[in-house]
Design a binder for these strands. Structure first.
Length: 740
DNA sequence: GAGCACTGC
């Protein structure tokens, strides 16, 4: 078992863990206590950000862009937009937008603010996310929206003329859409001197964002002002570090300001392992048991990387819980282990989020959901395995993979903060302090580790043609950009001059789908199966429709078998959909067939939206009824870049009855990189060995194999027929027996 | 031979 040290401290006495400031629980410095107040106004006034009202309004008046550095819980998301509202920034027919990276956040914050403003949600204060526009044109002054939906709005109104202020919240998360939004806003402010941009970010990113938005560099080509020094701002004691000239200098407007607001998190003491651990799941469980024995109250949150690890940790904790029950007395505190990951059905997620029953200490084994999307109250201890499962894109092979990687220090800090929401807490990192100091400071922005085809298509649709000259907050690798352009060209979205093609490229950009699926959907008209492809695209846009979650694997497999077809997973989804429709979208039917009604309803929403878009583009989607080949051809029209052929069977194991793995390779090649593909276990074609297939997603597991998910069997002669520019001759699978 | 980080339009 690992023992922990705290920086600057001697080794602890018991269990290797020291809790010097904890027992009295009162060592928190000048923190506002959690006393309940019924008066909303009073509560608002107590939020740290409220003290900075004057400064914020002053800076907004004088600077096009202001970066707000605010720690968690300082109230910026709810209070700052209200300050602007009350200061009259939404007068004159324009409104204030505040973007959020996630839908739930947009809804909950808007609801809260409407309450504080004493108005009906959807009137003066509203929100807008996909499928839900709870705002009233001409009435709504403050709108919370997802950054993705604001990007969509920009397609119709590139200068965002409907708004006087755009607040980009949680910009430090550096999601694809926030980075894209910031790049675009940088261009917008050059043409809209009346527009104000507020960016809320963590301290690490603030300088970078401010430098990026400096208007003096916007028009200048390539040159960046190195003299933008941080000096004391005009507001005296406030932490204003505006990179501005003297008062009244017209340069003020052009230079971004930075304002720091302290949070109201309680201090969290950090501990490190003295020696590295071999298995962080085991160490996390052992550490949990020791903490529990220490008897300090508070729930425990363990950060792991995936479903499997969470379930393993819970299983180990259950064993320990049993042991503790036998040892402890009748009234002893018990532990209640619970898993938490995004794929978990809502009811089980709630268990992890709700307070534990009396006499129980909740121990939640969670993935990254608990770092950003979901907040657990009552957590006093965070045990952090310091790893994360991350999406990475390899531009050489053109494939994305999910890989477990060490987290960044910024991410670790965020996770630690989860222990200090209600009282001072502890964070136990399952690595040595030395190892921790070698972690990268910040997480690599998504922009630099994702496939960019969709992003490039969106930019093209906004009239930005020169990708290489676009100012990115984090420039993506040139190779990834080239790959994106190649893919869009092969799909027909770009012409030979890399300009958005008409009408195809414009139509693709219009659809809320990744480019490959958009291409399939638009090609479906040609094959007379628009209805079917809309269904398939919708099913691919949602979480798995199969009701996952705990020990029902067999039942799911049996249910799945009822709908599966030789054509593959996508046609299987089609069968599921048709059967669900025939049942009258019956919830009971869905339950009997191990399907999630909630996910199916969401798919129905998306399907409806896709059909609406097709009609708006002047295409009436028709159904091909039983022509499965037409459906598969339309699928191929979008996914041909992911066509693979069977190479043979590889025998890696020494077991006599081991049947080997059917190995596939990309028809178009992988740029000299060796890539071994196989069908993922979840596929209905797993036991089958179609000689050629297209897949929708692939992920690289720890085995080194790229595993293809959502596969569709195709005929080799379809490729040159459907994508003649990519496949000139009839491509047949090479007859090649096993590999090594 | 057994599995799916997380968002978003």
């Amino acid at each position: 078992m690992g023992s922990f040290i705290k920086p600057g401290q001697r080794k602890a006495a018991a269990f290797g863990i020291s809790f010097d400031t904890d027992r009295d629980g009162t060592s928190a410095p000048a923190v506002i206590d959690g006393e309940k107040q019924s008066n909303l106004l009073h509560q608002r006034n107590r939020l740290p950000v409220t003290k900075y009202q004057r400064e914020i309004l002053y800076l907004l008046e004088r600077h096009s862009c202001t970066v707000l550095v605010g720690e968690t819980g300082c109230g910026k998301t709810t209070q700052v937009p209200q300050m602007l509202l009350e200061a009259g920034w939404a007068a004159g027919g324009r409104s204030i937008a505040c973007t959020q990276p996630r839908r739930v956040a947009a809804i909950t914050v808007a609801t809260r603010v409407a309450e504080e403003q004493g108005c009906t949600l959807g009137r003066e204060v509203g929100y807008k996310i996909r499928f839900e526009d709870v705002s009233t044109p001409g009435v709504t002054k403050l709108k919370y929206c997802t950054d993705g939906s604001l990007l969509r709005e920009m397609m119709d109104d590139p200068l965002l003329t409907a708004y006087s202020v755009i607040m980009v919240d949680e910009a430090h998360e550096r999601s694809l859409s926030t980075d894209l939004l910031l790049g675009l806003l940088r261009k917008v402010i050059a043409q809209r001197p009346d527009l104000r941009i507020l960016i809320s970010s963590a301290s690490l990113e603030a300088e970078k964002v401010a430098a990026f938005l400096d208007a003096r560099t916007v028009k200048a080509t390539r040159k960046r002002d190195r003299n933008a020094s941080s000096g004391p701002g005009p507001m005296g004691d406030a932490l204003v570090t505006a990179t501005n000239g003297p008062d009244g200098d017209p340069a003020d407007l052009a230079t971004p300001a930075i304002l720091s607001v302290e949070g109201r998190l309680h201090p969290v003491q950090v501990h490190y392992l003295e020696e590295p651990c071999a298995d962080y799941v085991v160490t996390a469980v052992e550490t949990t048991v020791e903490l529990h024995r220490e008897g300090i109250p508070g729930d425990i949150l363990i950060f792991l990387t995936g479903q499997e690890e969470c379930e393993r940790a819970v299983a180990l904790l259950e064993e320990e819980a049993g042991r503790l029950r036998r040892v402890g007395g009748k009234n002893a505190l018990r532990i209640m282990p619970l898993p938490l990951f995004a794929g978990l059905p809502a009811a089980q997620q709630m268990l992890a989020l709700e307070a534990a029953p009396r006499n129980y200490r909740k121990v939640v084994a969670a993935t990254n959901v608990a770092e950003t999307s979901l907040t657990l109250e009552g957590v006093t201890f965070v045990i952090d395995a310091c790893h994360v499962k991350q999406r990475t894109y390899n531009p050489r092979t053109g494939l994305e993979a999910l890989l477990v990687a060490p987290i960044s220090q910024a991410s670790a800090q965020q996770r630690a903060g989860r222990a200090g929401r209600i009282r001072p807490g502890h964070c136990l990192r399952l690595c040595t302090q030395e190892a921790f100091s070698k972690l990268q400071q910040a997480t690599v922005p998504e922009m630099q580790r994702a496939e960019l085809a969709g992003t490039v298509l969106q930019l093209k649709a906004l009239g930005i043609d020169n990708m290489m000259r676009f100012h990115w907050l984090a420039p993506p690798p040139a190779e990834a950009m080239v790959r994106a352009l190649e893919l869009l060209h092969s799909l027909g979205a770009l012409d030979d001059d890399a300009r958005l093609s008409k009408p195809l490229g414009c139509q693709m950009a219009e659809l809320p789908l990744e480019p490959r699926l958009a291409a399939s959907l638009l090609a479906a008209g040609r094959f007379g199966c628009g209805q079917e492809i809309a269904t398939i695209c919708a099913m691919l846009s949602v979480h798995s429709v199969w009701a996952s979650g705990g020990g029902q694997r067999r039942a799911i497999e049996e249910a799945q078998a009822k709908f599966s077809t030789a054509e593959g997973d996508l046609v299987t989804y089609l069968n599921v959909w048709k059967a669900w429709e025939d049942s009258g979208r019956n919830r009971k039917w869905a339950e009997r067939n191990m399907l999630s009604q909630r996910v199916l309803l969401r798919a129905a929403d998306i399907r409806g939206q896709l059909l609406y878009h097709l009609r708006r583009l002047g295409m009436e989607p028709i159904s091909c009824e039983n022509e499965v080949a037409a459906v598969c051809k339309a699928i191929t029209a979008g996914l041909f870049s992911y066509a693979t052929r069977l190479e043979g069977t590889i025998y890696e194991s020494v077991d006599a009855d081991y049947s080997g793995t059917n190995s596939y390779s990309l028809v178009r090649g992988t740029g000299g990189q060796a890539v071994r593909l196989r069908i993922h276990k979840s596929s209905v074609l797993w036991r089958v060995r179609p000689s050629m297939l297209v897949f929708h997603t692939v992920q690289q597991g720890p085995s080194g194999w790229h595993e293809m998910q959502d596969v569709t069997a195709i005929q080799p002669e379809w490729l040159p027929e459907i994508a003649p520019h990519m496949f000139q001759s009839v491509t047949r699978p090479r007859p090649q027996p096993g590999g090594t």
